[in-house]
Structure formats: structure tokens, C-alpha cells
């Protein structure tokens, strides 16, 4: 009996989960293990948010009014734009257009850096307003979620820089770009988490 596995599987999943039966896995399996772990981590934050909101509805109704909504909106637009640039970078590597791919990766990286600057400014602005992790339950959840997300954007931006160097070194082409694609799906996951965080903390009262 043959136990041979396709090269892109770990051999630990049911056959129904294989690429042949369920469809292509963008990037690679390890990045999806990472993404699903990160989603679980953020899910715990979101559940904590809803539990805290249940017990402290008035604090959570007042909380968003103390935040700088303009900076939250700016960061949402920046991250959505970064996702768009990343999708364009993927489109161009498939066309073997490395120059344009690199250009869009630099734009995505610029968005990541710009996000970090705006977020730092927001934390500074909060500090001037006298807000901190111990102000009340809303701000405890706010700082936990947003600082955690801040770290994710930070290290993913470093990873974008890494794939730019790999691209310049000729490691990616129309035929082989799984490393670049793995980073792209991770980057979109970070954007997705902000898509959830933004209305919870800045919009809903």
C-alpha cells in the first residue's frame, strides 16, 4: 500500500481536504496554519469585547466618543488601500511583470508604515486626553486589540520588505511565487481583522 503524499500537504488532513478535492491552497499550508491561529487569537479578543460590553453597556456606549474617529477612518482607508496594492502586486507577478509587482509591493509597504505612524500618533493623542489601559473596561479592550493589531502590521511590513528583496533577487516569477502569495494572504488577514475592529471600537455605541 502506498503512503505517498502530494508535496504540498502535511499528510495529516482528511482526503476531502486535499487540494485535488477541495481546491488550490493560496500560498502554502504553513501560512494557513499561522492565519487560522491568528484568527483564533483575535476571535478571543472579539469574544472578550462582547462579554465586556454585555456587563458594562454604558461604558462601551461612551467609550468610542473619547477616541479620535478621524484617525480610525484614516487607518481603515490606509489598510484597505494596502490590500488593494497587494492584490495588484499578485496580479502583476502572474503576468511576470516584476517591475510593476515591486512597485505595488512598495506601495503596500508604505501603507503599512503610514498605518504605524498614524496609530502611534493616535496612542499619543489618547495619552494627551488622559486615556490609558486602566481608564475603564472599554479602553482596556481597545488597547489590547489595537496594540496587538499594531504589532501584526509591524512584523508583516518587515515581511513585505523581505519579499521585495526576494523579488529583486529573482526568486519569484509567474510560475513560482508561492512565498509572495503566502505573504499576500497573511497581509489580507491583517486587513480583515481591522475591518472587524474598526466598527466595534469606533462606530458602534
Amino acid at each position: 500500500m502506498s503512503h505517498e503524499q502530494p508535496s504540498n500537504t502535511l499528510g495529516i488532513f482528511p482526503r476531502a481536504w486535499s487540494e485535488e478535492q477541495a481546491g488550490r491552497i493560496p500560498g502554502n499550508i504553513p501560512i494557513w496554519v499561522g492565519i487560522l491561529s491568528e484568527l483564533t487569537e483575535f476571535a478571543i479578543f472579539f469574544v472578550a469585547y462582547f462579554v465586556a460590553k454585555y456587563y458594562y453597556p454604558d461604558v462601551f456606549a461612551q467609550g468610542p466618543q473619547g477616541l479620535n474617529t478621524s484617525l480610525g477612518v484614516a487607518n481603515t482607508i490606509i489598510l484597505l488601500s494596502s490590500s488593494y496594492f497587494m492584490a495588484k502586486a499578485m496580479m502583476h507577478i502572474r503576468l511576470n511583470n516584476r517591475g510593476k509587482c515591486q512597485g505595488y509591493l512598495w506601495l503596500a509597504l508604505s501603507c503599512g508604515c503610514f498605518y504605524l505612524i498614524v496609530k502611534t500618533w493616535e496612542f499619543y493623542w489618547n495619552n494627551l486626553q488622559g486615556l490609558s489601559t486602566s481608564t475603564n473596561e472599554f479602553y482596556t479592550v481597545y488597547y489590547y486589540m489595537t496594540f496587538n493589531h499594531f504589532l501584526h502590521v509591524g512584523w508583516a511590513s518587515c515581511a513585505v520588505l523581505w519579499v521585495i528583496f526576494r523579488l529583486r533577487a529573482g526568486h519569484y516569477s509567474a510560475e513560482e511565487h508561492s512565498g509572495l502569495e503566502a505573504l499576500a494572504v497573511y497581509w489580507h488577514m491583517i486587513d480583515l481583522m481591522w475591518i472587524l475592529i474598526f466598527p466595534l471600537l469606533y462606530v458602534l455605541r
Binding site: A22, S83, V185
Partner: peptide, 9 residues
Amino acid sequence: FMELKHANK
């Protein structure tokens, strides 16, 4: 953007 529409279900 993640391109999962036609990828792994």
C-alpha cells in the same frame, strides 16, 4: 483580494 473565491472551498 485573498482570491479564495475559486480556491480551497
